[in-house]
């Protein structure tokens, strides 16, 4: 698959403050959904702002669709749609007009048919004549998406698109994102909702203190870093781990009738479940039930931003 966005050793230092980005390099493939995760102030919005032309980079190079965002900014920006983090709309302007403005800004002639189609998809058609100030927060966010899609972009940046919206709208947003991906649009979203990234992203990038800690396929990341736990429920309580089971990473569960076995599903490592169950039986413990659970992306994310890099 072709590279749609290439970020090469980009750095940014604001006039007042420490470095916001330090030698960030990132490659985003055409048609993929990349979720950028990171705590507040990690540099997510700065990175997006640099790619979109809102912020001047201190060093490095960015291309979008092969076009340099500085020297060939017109061609690069034509490919990009941006949904900003903050809701920013002209309060007295009508929905349809504000979407028309966006299309015009990107050098396209007025096309009311396309705008109608976009507004309908976003359930905004009934609100087309409403002033922005009359809309709810969720509706305003939809208008921002409509504006970003008004010029049929090939790349869409969604900066915290579901921040502060209700569950129903969030699900709608996910459907919109999936639909855009099906049409071949490359999507980069930043989010605090880790389940969001887990649910819709092809790859996940974790950024913290202006540095990219990792970029990896969501499934592979879960597989590589996802720790599993097996809760072994016993028929009788135990006070301590039997000595014959000391070689296993076992701990007593919250319930006195349970043991918790932690293992890693990383490729090339055996979880040792068969041997453990056999040894438990040999130790005279009788099983009642067995459950497994996998650490979520949230756990992985917390571990990554907490631990210093190797």
């Amino acid at each position: 698959m072709a590279t749609m966005i290439s970020v090469e050793t980009v750095s940014k230092t604001y006039a007042s403050g420490p470095a916001a980005l330090t030698d960030v390099s990132l490659s985003i493939e055409q048609g993929e959904i990349l979720a950028l995760l990171g705590p507040n102030g990690a540099g997510k919005t700065t990175l997006i702002s640099i790619i979109c032309g809102l912020t001047t980079m201190s060093g490095g190079r960015v291309t979008v669709g092969g076009h340099d965002v500085i020297t060939d900014y017109r061609a690069a920006r034509r490919l990009i749609g941006l949904v900003p983090q903050e809701i920013a709309l002209e309060p007295f302007e009508r929905v349809q007009n504000t979407v028309r403005l966006s299309r015009g800004l990107f050098g396209l002639p007025r096309d009311d048919g396309y705008i109608e189609e976009t507004l309908r998809k976003l359930s905004l058609w009934d609100k087309r004549a409403a002033q922005s100030l009359e809309l709810s927060g969720g509706m305003k966010r939809r208008v921002l998406i409509a504006k970003a899609l008004s010029h049929e972009p090939e790349v869409l940046f969604l900066d915290e698109p579901t921040a502060g919206v209700d569950v129903e709208l969030r699900k709608d947003m996910w459907d919109i994102v999936r639909d855009l991906k099906a049409r071949g649009v490359t999507i980069i979203l930043t989010t605090h909702y880790i389940e969001e990234a887990e649910a819709i992203a092809d790859r996940i990038g974790v950024i913290n203190k202006g540095e990219i800690l990792l970029v990896e396929e969501t499934a592979a990341l879960m597989k590589r870093m996802g720790q599993k736990q097996m809760v072994i429920e016993l028929q009788a309580p135990v006070d301590a781990i039997p000595a014959s089971l000391a070689k296993y990473d076992l701990s007593l569960g919250d319930d006195p009738c349970s043991l918790v076995y932690s293992y890693v599903t990383q490729a090339g490592r055996r979880p040792g479940i068969t041997a453990l169950l056999s040894d438990i039986s040999d130790a005279g413990l009788r099983l009642r039930d067995v459950q497994t659970r996998q650490s979520s992306l949230e756990d992985i994310f917390v571990d990554l931003v907490k631990e210093p890099r190797a």
């Binding site: 979109c52 032309g53 017109r74 034509r78 920013a88 309060p91 990107f106 050098g107």
Partner: peptide, 18 residues
């Protein structure tokens, strides 16, 4: 000034306009 004040200037700055 108004687009700066309400934040809609982002659209102008990210558009392919000189």
């Amino acid at each position: 000034y108004f687009p700066k004040f309400i934040g809609t200037i982002y659209e102008l700055l990210s558009a392919p306009v000189s």
